[in-house]
Design a protein around this nucleic acid. Structure first.
Lengths: 124, 124
DNA sequence: CCGGATCCTTTATGATACTG
DNA sequence: CAGTATCATAAAGGATCCGG
């Protein structure tokens, strides 16, 4: 009866703080940034290049939000001219597993879901 | 070597279709609806009551989207006056695990993240 | 009871220009 | 290089009214 069972079959609970957290961390650009920073620390323009469709405004907003949540750190290198490096934190690394599970789910079921969409759209 | 390993330590890949799928299925109201329908089939107004903060417009949009993606089914009961019941599908049930993993992560790390936020906000 | 159509407000996002 | 500030626009969301 291990009440310490991870993921016991209890009903999920989504409190506003939980929801806010997911919003801050699972949005489009955050996942892309995480993906990149899981591979290696990167500089601002390096991230822009790695994520070609992000605007600089959205990227900087995303970075500041992830930094505030302790998911990444901003590291200012006192070189010349200034260089700034973003790195994933230990806390940030814990996000990888849930995100992987999610992407794994998406990959597995995307075909079935696309089929469902076609069927829905045809039926009108 | 098992190349069939689930979640091998390969880099995540987020294609536009994957991203769209997550957007359609992980948004605020979808998770609430899923949560409710995992417990029991429900009618429209039952869902409104269970999720007091959702507007009817957002709820109906959410339901139609989830239905289109094959996550839930809309079941019209030929009673009088019309009753409509929404149920989770087999495909929809597969979503539960990833969502649980996500919520488990959020629950575990929320304190650390709130601490990070306070520290960030104080530092200015 | 279920939900579409409309109007209106709020929020998110992009393009552009400028600074330490 | 690494951003911020500003402006313009689009998309999301709520409130309300109405019809099947």
């Amino acid at each position: 009866m291990a009440d310490t069972d991870p993921l016991a079959a209890e009903r999920l609970q989504i409190t506003p703080p939980h929801r806010e957290l997911l919003d801050q961390v699972l949005d489009k650009w955050s996942l892309e940034v995480l993906n990149q920073l899981c591979e290696r620390p990167s500089r601002f323009n390096e991230l822009r290049h790695a994520i070609p469709t992000v605007s600089q405004k959205s990227l900087s907003a995303t970075l500041r939000r992830l930094e505030r949540n302790g998911i990444i750190v901003r590291h200012v290198l006192s070189s010349r001219p200034v260089a700034v490096e973003y790195r994933i934190t230990t806390l940030g690394k814990t996000l990888r597993h849930p995100v992987d599970v999610l992407l794994d789910w998406a990959g597995r079921h995307l075909p079935a879901i696309e089929a469902a969409r076609r069927s829905y759209d045809e039926a009108g």
